[in-house]
């Protein structure tokens, strides 16, 4: 298994796009008896076309934008009825997950469907050319927020914890051990598992493709993207985020912001509001941990 590339090289992903690596590391653990359900997104394109074939070595079911949770529910139901074993994994962008497909995601989570739902969050509708989503952070430029987004980032991981599902985790490809441990953990649990990866996007966030991992890392180090895990109704921080509960240990958010042109026009006032969002998020984590 170790020698298999689950995502073959040469995909249509942009230079510096973390998606192929993120997927490969998931499939390496999930193995060949896995089916991916992929809604309309950059990943639709990355999964190839009918002439050139697909990079995935496991079956891929393409899904309308709002439908992946329900399609995955149906696949799993059929497998149960027909006594087939295998993993059903949704691989969806933030727009599908938090906006148009949210009702369907919520429904599947509330029914505790036995599927793994993974949101790769590049914080906008990238496939259609960088429009804001509910998960775009405050202050970020996009083609539909030319002056910067005025609203906060919808807190999907918390919302999913509130569905009382067996497992919720946040991930970053900059921390592969933490990343893989969470995928492995998710594989051992049955019921609805929700994993949320912050997935930096060079053209959408306006940074140099060589900086993807650095930016992913800074998101964690500045406390913007806390790595955490929710299981048996309990929330805990994981990896480097454990120490970051202490605000003084976090790097200043400027280090993260200044590498991305999407925050170029951020005013001091907006930066203050963004910091408030982050503080509020950490308070919420503490509240949920106690």
């Amino acid at each position: 298994m170790a020698n298999v590339n689950y995502m073959l090289r040469g995909t249509a992903a942009c230079p510096g796009c973390p998606i192929p690596r993120e997927l490969n590391n998931i499939l390496e653990i999930a193995g060949k008896d896995t089916v991916l359900v992929v809604p309309a997104s950059c990943s639709t394109i990355i999964m190839g076309d009918d002439i050139h074939g697909m990079p995935s070595v496991v079956p891929v079911v393409h899904s309308p934008f709002a439908a992946p949770s329900a399609i995955a529910s149906g696949i799993k139901a059929a497998m149960n009825q027909l006594n087939k074993k295998g993993n059903v994994i949704v691989w969806a962008g933030d727009g599908s997950t938090g906006d148009i497909g949210f009702a369907s995601l919520s429904g599947a989570a509330e029914r505790n469907e036995d599927i793994i739902y993974i949101c790769y969050d590049n914080e906008a509708y990238m496939n259609t050319g960088i429009q804001r989503s509910g998960l775009t952070p405050r202050g970020a430029w996009s083609t539909t927020t030319p002056e910067g987004k005025r609203e906060f980032k919808k807190p999907l991981p918390f919302l999913m914890m509130d569905h009382k599902i067996p497992y919720v985790a946040t991930l970053s490809i900059a921390y592969p051990f933490d990343y893989e441990a969470k995928i492995k953990k998710a594989m051992t649990i049955s019921g609805f598992r929700y994993l949320h990866i912050l997935s930096p996007c060079p053209p959408g966030w306006r940074f140099d493709p060589s900086l993807t991992i650095e930016i992913a890392k800074l998101a964690v180090e500045t406390g913007i993207w806390p790595l955490m895990e929710y299981e048996n109704n309990k929330l805990k921080l994981t990896g480097p985020s454990i120490l970051l509960k202490d605000k003084s240990k976090r790097k200043p958010i400027e280090e993260y912001l200044k590498l991305q042109e999407r925050f170029k026009e951020l005013s001091d006032e907006e930066k203050r509001l963004l910091e408030e969002d982050i503080n509020a998020m950490w308070l919420e984590i503490e509240r949920r941990m106690s």
């Binding site: 076309d49 074939g53 697909m54 393409h62």
Partner: peptide
């Protein structure tokens, strides 16, 4: 493994 509904 095949892709179902792949871009055409």
């Amino acid at each position: 493994p095949v892709g179902i509904g792949t871009v055409a």
